[in-house]
């Protein structure tokens, strides 16, 4: 919580407390102005700023992993094998560790568009009121766009032999017709079912 938001909440609470204890102050013009500020203007502003802060906080990896069902996905980031795409990205700081989930799943759950946000609320409902599925699947196949945010235009990506194997390979990748996660390409991701069989990075401070 930022200092500005703390200040805003504190000032609003102080005004409200004063109005609660001495509502008679609204007989004066100054008191009516304070009531307008304390009951209407500042709380509306505090709510908008608070909402924005909540959405911003939902990008944190800690937020995603706070649900028990997501714990294995967090653990998978410590797999000691460079072939595992999420683990190697997090361990080598290719993505911000604090926002690792959000960086690669930008349209997912609470941080996507309105449809994704409704989906995120559904996840919460299923997690607490229903029966979460044994296997968590993405709603749609993973979009190459999330990879190309960083890799698009990069020399290592553009000049890779595998990416330029045929005349159409690169076009197909960029048009999301050929998935980066295709079998034989970058198909090792979280692999949560086999975590206990995989070697973990011992010195991980993730």
């Amino acid at each position: 919580m930022g200092i500005e938001l703390v200040g805003l909440l504190a000032i609003t609470a102080a005004l409200l407390l004063a109005l609660l204890l001495r509502p008679g102050m609204t007989r004066e013009r100054g008191g009516r102005v304070l009531a307008f500020l304390g009951i209407l203007l500042l709380p509306s502003l505090a709510f908008a700023v608070g909402f924005s802060a909540h959405v911003e906080r939902s990008k944190k990896r800690e937020f995603c992993l706070s649900c028990h069902i997501m714990e294995p996905y967090g653990k998978s980031l410590a797999i000691d094998d460079d072939e595992y795409v999420p683990a190697s990205h997090v361990q080598n700081n290719r993505v911000h560790r604090d926002e690792a989930c959000f960086t690669c799943h930008t349209t997912y759950a609470l941080y996507g568009d309105i449809k994704a946000k409704i989906g995120g609320l559904r996840h919460i409902a299923v997690n607490y009121l229903g029966a979460p599925p044994d296997t968590i699947r993405l709603y749609k196949p993973y979009n190459n766009r999330e990879c190309l945010h960083c890799h698009g235009g990069a020399r290592s990506f553009e000049s890779s032999d595998a990416h330029t194997e045929t005349d159409t390979t690169m076009t197909a990748i960029k048009a999301n017709r050929l998935s980066c996660m295709s079998s034989g390409c970058h198909d090792l991701v979280h692999d949560v079912r086999n975590l206990d069989k995989l070697e973990m990075w011992k010195g991980a401070r993730l």
Binding site: M1, L9, L16, L19, P23, G50, C67, G120, H123
Partner: peptide, 29 residues
């Protein structure tokens, strides 16, 4: 009108308290 303003202030204060507490906890709920 003063009683109503006091009620309004109490309700908004409750909302502000909920906001402050919710912002201290990093969880979807």
């Amino acid at each position: 009108i003063e009683r109503r303003i006091r009620l309004a202030a109490a309700l908004v204060l409750l909302g502000i308290a909920i906001e402050a507490v919710s912002l201290r906890i990093l969880h979807p709920l």
